[in-house]
Structures are given as C-alpha cells and as structure tokens.
C-alpha cells in the first residue's frame, strides 16, 4: 500500500500570509501537498520544543517550521529562536535513533510565493522517502 505521509507545518502569519486566500484553495491550486496540515502561529518564536514533539506524538511523520528570513524577521528574532528549537528537536530525535530530517526549518519571505510551495513539496518528498514515523505503535 502506498504511504501517504502526515506532515505538520508550523508557520508564522507573515510567511504564510496568503495561505488563507481563496479559503486555502489557492495553495492547493499551486501544488501545495495535501499531506501537509498548516498550523498558523503569530510568531514561530512562540513554538516550543514541546509543541514540536507533540506533533510527533499526535502522529506526524514529519514536521517543519516556516518563519521569516533570519535578517528580516517581523518580530526581530522569532524565526532564529524557532530554528534553535528545531535544532534541539533534531538532536532529541537523534538520541532516540530517529532520522533528524523528519523535522526541518525554513526561512522564507512573507506572502504567498513559489518557495512556500516548494518547501512543502521538499518536505513531502523527503518524508515519503523516510517512510512512516517510527513512533506509530
């Protein structure tokens, strides 16, 4: 049976600004993978290590965070802090002998643009290659 991944994306309002346009349909029309569930947060700096781990506990095969570019974060350091949390979770996954690539950080400009869709496609491809989460009992 083919594997349909479950991917959770945490993105700040700014980087995912237009994801709600056309009731979210615009994203789909642009080829954004349907395997991805988008969780919008006011700032990715607010995303905690526990938030990311919880996504895995809730059954995600992969998790990624999209925040502003490092040099131009709307909240100055929010996306840098998010990247550090992602790194912490990568290390924790390694400790559990799980591929650290199941979680990634992307820094993207605000608004709807090809990179936002491309990041989703990259994650979708990667998680399909890695296969189902080893945390499924």
């Amino acid at each position: 049976m083919s594997f349909e991944p479950k991917i959770t994306l945490f993105s700040c309002h700014y980087a995912s600004q237009q994801s709600c346009a056309e009731k979210g349909k615009e994203l789909q029309q642009l080829g954004f993978p349907t395997t991805i569930t988008l969780v919008r947060v006011p700032c990715t700096g607010k995303v905690q290590v526990t938030t990311l781990l919880q996504a895995f506990e809730d059954g995600a095969d992969g998790v990624y965070v999209v925040g502003c570019p490092v040099e131009s974060c709307h909240n100055v350091k929010g996306s840098v802090r998010a990247a550090k949390k992602v790194t912490a979770v990568k290390k924790a996954l390694e400790e559990l002998d799980v591929e650290s690539g199941r979680i990634e950080m992307f820094h993207l400009p605000r608004g709807l643009h090809p990179e936002f869709v491309a990041a989703g496609v990259t994650m979708d491809k990667k998680i399909r290659t890695l296969g189902p989460s080893p945390f499924q009992s």
Binding site: Q48, T50, L53, F56, E57, A92, L96, D97, V98
Partner: peptide
Amino acid sequence: EREAAALASLIRLGMKKQGKT
C-alpha cells in the same frame, strides 16, 4: 516544568518506538 514536559514527551516517543506504551 518546561523541560519536564519535553522529557515526558520524549519518554513516550522513545517507548513508542520500542513498541511499548
């Protein structure tokens, strides 16, 4: 409390990976 919450999550995930609950 924050680190304990993360550890609780990691214990659950680690055990799940071993097929235990």
